[in-house]
């Protein structure tokens, strides 16, 4: 097994991917990026970065698989239940009298957060007036998100998070078990006002304006420079008074755009665009 990779080799790899395929990983946090590559070498039994580069150059399908492995897709429903409670109890009520509420899940992975939001809105009676955009760089995870089918082994965690979120029903009100109980599928009505699209936070522009943007546990994989740029993108994509929600251990404190936001809730990492 290969124990380490040279930074120079990583740079070559990143340059190749950028040149041929338009993905740019040059500002991803380097140590986790390196671990992902080591993992890929092991998974596909590839001897080193040079061989990986050769394979990537000639095979687009393989490149897409590699991208999926590079980007960490871990997610769960109602992760950090207190944040979801804050959304329900203090953030969303402010939009009660609006005609529309626009929400962007930036980097939604396989969609668990989108279903969480769908359920929250339904229980709050706000589904009808809300439009949700859910995006990710990776088409494969978006496909899963659209289908809303997940393996049953993830159910225990999702159910316990839903309980701690203290929803008004049971999570099982929203899904049914399929395939000999090996999987469960969410009720399509939860997704009624959801649009999925691919969007690359590194290269793509702002495409609309929103009241709430959630981008959780994504920027931890970026370096300072890229975090700065992405927060700027969110600033441009929020209405004044709109909210940005990050992962529980993320912060915009170091970003240039920080001055355009006020901190609404330090624990839940909810920021408000001011001025």
């Amino acid at each position: 097994m290969i124990q380490d990779i040279d930074i120079k080799e990583l740079r070559n790899l990143i340059a190749t991917i950028k040149e041929i395929y338009r993905y740019d990983f040059s500002n991803y946090a380097i140590s986790s990026f390196k671990r992902r590559i080591l993992r890929i070498l092991e998974l596909y039994k590839i001897s080193g970065v040079e061989e990986l580069i050769t394979k990537i150059k000639t095979n687009r399908m393989f490149l897409e698989e590699v991208i999926k492995e590079i980007t960490v897709n871990t997610t769960e429903m109602f992760r950090d239940p207190s944040m979801w409670r804050t959304l329900r109890e203090t953030i969303l009520p402010q939009f009660k009298n609006n005609n529309t509420i626009r929400i962007w899940h930036a980097a939604c992975s396989s969609g668990e957060e989108v279903y969480s939001m769908g359920i929250l809105l339904k229980e709050a009676g706000l589904s009808e007036k809300t439009s949700i955009f859910a995006s990710d760089i990776n088409e494969d995870v978006l496909k899963t998100a659209k289908q809303g089918i997940y393996p049953t082994r993830t159910l225990e965690l999702n159910m316990s998070n839903y309980e701690r979120f203290a929803g008004i029903g049971k999570l099982s009100d929203y899904y049914k078990l399929i395939d000999n109980n090996e999987k469960y599928v969410f009720d399509k009505s939860i997704l009624k006002n959801v649009m999925f699209r691919t969007h690359d936070l590194v290269l793509d522009e702002s495409f609309s304006k929103f009241d709430i943007i959630l981008c959780r546990n994504v920027m931890i994989y970026f370096n300072f420079e890229l975090q700065d740029k992405v927060v700027q993108l969110f600033e441009n994509s929020l209405f004044t008074g709109g909210y940005l929600v990050l992962g529980s251990k993320e912060t915009i404190a170091w970003c240039k755009s920080a001055k355009s936001f006020s901190v609404v809730n330090v624990e839940d990492k909810i920021y408000k665009k001011i001025g």
Binding site: A29, I30, S31, S32, R35, T74, I220, K249
Partner: peptide, 12 residues
């Protein structure tokens, strides 16, 4: 990370 700071991740 090199540069003396902490990175948190949600890897496997």
């Amino acid at each position: 990370e090199i540069g003396n700071y902490i990175s948190l991740t949600t890897e496997e």
